[in-house]
């Protein structure tokens, strides 16, 4: 493999990592602040993608579609928080797992009921279609570059939000001592709804952005959810920085592993077999990465002791 191709694959890994970050960031915030495990986070990702596809089909505007995705996912998140999730904060993780598992069933089938059983269409905006030639001669899709830029900008924005704003102070206070901030007069139930809606909006945003280059279909959220779990385990619960580092690590491992392992095996195997075996092993790589991190640091790279 040439160096150029390798660099392009690194870029691809970075891009998928950055998109993964958007999903993982919301999850880790909700974990950190409310101590809640939300299996239905993937459903919010799906809602964002479907809302974007529906609005794009109706209006033809990608901007409106993204706004719709943010709004729909945030609204769904706030609604779910107020109707269901709110009752779960005092419960143990077991009840949270079951309740949010139930939410997945409801969201998935309700989406299929509303939008039908076939995937929907969502395309990238004309302004971002096609590819550009990067220094060094890599032909790279403009949209993917935009995804990297948007993801990193949002990451920076989140850091700012957490470290510099009033909301951020409340969130951090909520992570370390829940009773205290209530005692200080912060409306904690409003704060929780807000954080949950923010996490949902991030997931929905990621769903819409990724939906434009993938397939908008029921069940699209669950694989992402499981990857996001791996990211959070690696990065450490509640840490935005951990989520970013973990997501990029997972993205790079997944992309480069899938490309390099079959290549390596080709040195001592027939090409067909190398492709099959290499791909089988590559599918396990990120879990091995997780296991290694776990042995090294049981609470993730940037996690606090639980």
């Amino acid at each position: 493999m040439t160096l150029l191709l390798f660099l392009e694959q690194v870029l691809n890994g970075l891009q998928s990592g950055v998109m993964l970050f958007l999903t993982a960031a919301g999850l880790t915030l909700v974990f950190g602040v409310m101590g809640l495990i939300n299996l239905a986070h993937g459903s919010l990702y799906m809602i964002g993608a479907f809302a974007a596809a529906a609005i794009a089909a109706a209006t033809g505007s990608f901007t409106l579609a993204i706004i719709a995705a943010l709004t729909a996912a945030a609204a769904a998140g706030a609604l779910v928080e107020m109707v269901v999730i709110r009752r779960l904060y005092t419960r143990d993780h077991l009840d949270q797992v079951l309740a949010t598992f139930a939410l997945i069933l409801i969201f998935s089938e309700a989406t299929r009921w509303v939008f039908g059983s076939f995937p929907l269409y969502l395309d990238i905006p004309d302004a971002l279609s096609g590819s550009v030639r990067l220094p060094g001669g890599i032909e790279y899709p403009r949209y993917r570059l935009a995804l990297i830029a948007v993801g990193l900008t949002l990451a920076a924005g989140l850091f700012f939000l957490i470290s510099r704003t009033r909301l951020g102070i409340q969130i951090r206070a909520g992570e370390s001592d829940r009773e205290m901030i209530a005692a200080l007069g912060v409306n904690i139930s409003k704060l929780y709804t807000l954080v949950f809606a923010l996490g949902a909006a991030l997931a929905g945003f990621a769903g819409a952005l990724v939906g434009a280059i993938q397939s908008v279909q029921v069940g699209m959220g669950e694989p992402v959810l499981i990857l996001a779990f791996v990211v959070i385990v690696i990065g450490g619960i509640g840490s935005i920085k951990g989520a970013l580092v973990g997501a990029v690590l997972v993205g790079l491992t997944d992309t480069l592993g899938g490309v390099l392992l079959p290549e390596a095996l080709r040195l001592f195997m027939a090409p067909s077999d190398a492709a099959a075996v290499g791909s089988a092993l590559a599918s396990m790589l990120i879990y091995l990465l997780m296991a290694v991190v776990l042995i090294w640091r049981p609470h993730g790279l940037y996690g606090m002791r639980a």
């Binding site: 974990f31 779990f229 791996v230 385990v233 619960i237 599918s283 396990m284 639980a306």
Partner: peptide, 24 residues
């Protein structure tokens, strides 16, 4: 080595690893 939410996610991820391996 972990507990709580970590434990839930890790066990899920390991099972997923078996799943992908069995498929491929």
């Amino acid at each position: 080595r972990t507990s709580g939410v970590y434990f839930i996610m890790i066990t899920l991820a390991f099972a997923q690893m078996f799943y992908y391996f069995a498929i491929s």
